[in-house]
């Protein structure tokens, strides 16, 4: 069953056609990698799906519902989790408090004036941190984390609303190769257990071929190929982009 449908998305920046009529879809439980060279339009696509920027044209459907232009906070309520290319967390809080706040928000209790935030949802927070392998770091201020751990923390926060769809923009950038596979194996596990769809961008082809069910290739804002790993691997257009004209 299709969960996410991208329908002719467009975005211009002045003369730059950052995304030019891209359409594809993601099925429930499917892991799709969005790949392409630098400046291909991957992040722009992600931001249009995630509600950070408004498309100039086209639609985004989630489970059949039109969510084009809905703000990120509304998508969070509809079961979309998101991590960013440049990982951001709340620097003045501990690792656990970051996750607790995401859980509080999911329970619609983030605006309460009373009660200690640090006492809230302790058990769920512990479980989420354990799931991403951060339980030993729970009480550390999160601005002291290594970058790889910041990425894991972002993932834990993105999972706090028990999402149907996870959007991950370069989830493993800045990590050591071993860490990359660990993190993506974790994501794959969660995806399989919870029937969670994952759309991610990635520059590391090992990660892509190791963890994507399907691959969508962008170049200069256009969709040039999509399909299974095998189909994409042999696609002449993809070869040309990645290996240069001579190939």
């Amino acid at each position: 069953m299709t969960l996410l449908t991208i329908d002719h998305l467009e975005k211009h920046y002045g003369g730059v056609h950052a995304v030019a009529g891209v359409s594809f879809s993601v099925a429930s439980g499917e892991r799709v990698a969005l790949i392409g060279p630098n400046g291909a339009g991957k992040t722009t696509c992600f931001n249009m799906i995630g509600g950070q920027i408004r498309p100039d044209a086209g639609r985004v459907l989630l489970g059949g519902e039109d969510i084009t232009g809905a703000p990120p906070r509304a998508l969070f309520r509809k079961g979309v989790g998101r991590t960013f290319q440049i990982a951001t967390t709340f620097g003045s809080m501990t690792v656990r408090e970051n996750v607790q706040l995401a859980l509080l928000s999911h329970a619609r209790r983030a605006l309460r004036f009373l009660g200690e935030a640090t006492d809230a949802a302790a058990e769920e927070a512990r479980a989420l941190l354990a799931a991403v392998g951060l339980e030993t770091q729970a009480t550390r201020p999160c601005d002291q984390l290594a970058y790889g751990d910041v990425k894991r923390l972002e993932l834990a926060m993105a999972l706090a609303n028990a999402p149907r769809l996870l959007l991950m923009d370069e989830p493993t950038a800045g990590m050591a190769p071993r860490e990359r596979h660990e993190l993506m194996a974790l994501v794959s596990d969660i995806s399989a257990q919870r029937d969670l769809s994952v759309l991610f961008t990635e520059h590391d082809m090992d990660v892509v071929f190791g963890h994507a069910d399907r691959i969508v290739v962008l170049d200069r804002g256009r969709l040039v190929a999509q399909g299974s790993q095998e189909e994409v691997r042999v696609d002449p257009e993809v070869k040309r982009i990645y290996l240069g004209e001579s190939a």
């Binding site: 990120p72 906070r73 967390t89 709340f90 999911h106 983030a110 926060m157």
Partner: peptide, 18 residues
């Protein structure tokens, strides 16, 4: 905490529904 979240990282706060 929500108030601090908005100060620390606006984008992230928005992405977790705040």
């Amino acid at each position: 905490y929500s108030l601090r979240a908005g100060r620390d990282a606006n984008l992230r706060a928005d992405a977790i529904g705040i």
